[in-house]
């Protein structure tokens, strides 16, 4: 019986006779602070794509209505809030039909709240991957956020339908809408990475997230316009990075003036969160497999 043991190493013609002069991979205890390895993340872009695709696919695979849920969730919320806040409580809506007003605000809010809830627990939920295979861990919360973006895109189609129904015309302001989507994604990534990394070590975070989401819902002008807040508290409102996104989304969609102050605050906070989370993530990443 021929055994492998009888084969001399290097005998086969397929053996690469010349090894690269530099190691392809070098493994050692890393320094404390590392910059993001963007090159590596780029190398793993297909995995990001597949994990995003998996999240989307799995979410609707066993549901009867499938993708309809993506549309139904904000629509139902819109109907309920239109009845309660629009008709009964009569919350002002900046002279827009309340349904349209609330739907435009709901989309970024729902994207954001889902993104942080799901990405917050994403690393712990992917323990089986983290303890078995190497890849930049950043991909896990990122894929969760990106899969939320797919849902968001579907809802935007409904929003366009609503705009046509209410006869709200497009304007040059719409050009800002994609910018706001990018901003919203960056913000969700930043928060998601922070929370997911912390949650690996401190499971308190998972318990904290629903509370955060609830506070955020009230602190963000989703169901009411920020103009409802008294002048002297406006600054506080604008410190919430979501205010700049939600209010300016409406401005972009419905041809209203932009609030550049809140927009700039959002950009500042989003970038700050993304950069800081990237560093924190890299720092904590190496111990994920030990804790998860």
């Amino acid at each position: 019986m021929e055994t492998l043991a009888e084969l001399e190493p290097g005998k086969s013609p397929d053996v690469p006779q010349v090894l690269p002069p530099e190691p392809v991979v070098e493994i050692k205890a890393s320094r404390t602070w590392l910059a993001l390895n963007l090159k590596e993340i780029w190398a793993y872009r297909e995995l990001l794509y597949f994990l995003t695709w998996r999240d989307v696919k799995v979410r609707y695979k066993q549901t009867l209505l499938g993708v309809v849920w993506v549309v139904l969730q904000p629509l139902m919320t819109m109907v309920i809030t239109t009845i309660f806040f629009g008709k009964i409580v009569r919350v002002p809506s900046d002279n827009l039909p309340y349904a349209l007003f609330v739907f435009a605000g709901l989309l970024p809010w729902m994207f954001f709240s889902k993104a942080i809830t799901q990405s917050g627990s994403s690393l712990v939920g992917s323990a089986n991957l983290i303890t078995k295979v190497y890849f930049p861990r950043l991909i896990i919360p990122s894929a969760t956020v990106l899969s939320g973006l797919v849902d968001y895109a579907v809802s935007v189609v409904v929003l366009i339908g609503l705009m046509i129904y209410y006869g709200v015309g497009a304007s040059v302001h719409l050009l800002m809408f994609p910018v706001l989507i990018v901003l919203m994604t960056i913000l969700a990534l930043g928060v998601g990475m922070w929370l997911s990394a912390l949650n690996v070590k401190y499971r308190d975070v998972a318990a904290m997230i629903p509370f955060l989401v609830q506070v955020g819902m009230f602190a963000t002008p989703v169901y009411y316009p920020s103009s409802l807040i008294p002048e002297k508290w406006q600054w506080l409102m604008k410190l919430n990075p979501l205010t700049g996104i939600v209010e300016n989304s409406r401005a972009a969609l419905f041809n209203r003036p932009f609030d550049w102050l809140s927009f700039n605050i959002s950009v500042g906070i989003a970038v700050l969160l993304l950069v800081s989370s990237a560093y924190v993530f890299r720092r904590m990443e190496k111990s994920f497999a030990d804790f998860v």
Binding site: P16, L19, P20, P23, V24, V25, E26, I27, K28, A29, S30, N128, L129, I130, T131, K132, V133, Y134, K286, S287, A289, D290
Partner: peptide, 25 residues
């Protein structure tokens, strides 16, 4: 590369594939 060593270093002169489990993911 799932966990980091406390000390020491490893040099790998080629692409690495690891199979610590089948059916991961």
């Amino acid at each position: 590369r799932i966990v980091e060593p406390t000390t020491g270093n490893i040099k790998l002169y080629g692409r690495v594939g690891s199979l610590l489990e089948v059916g991961t993911g």
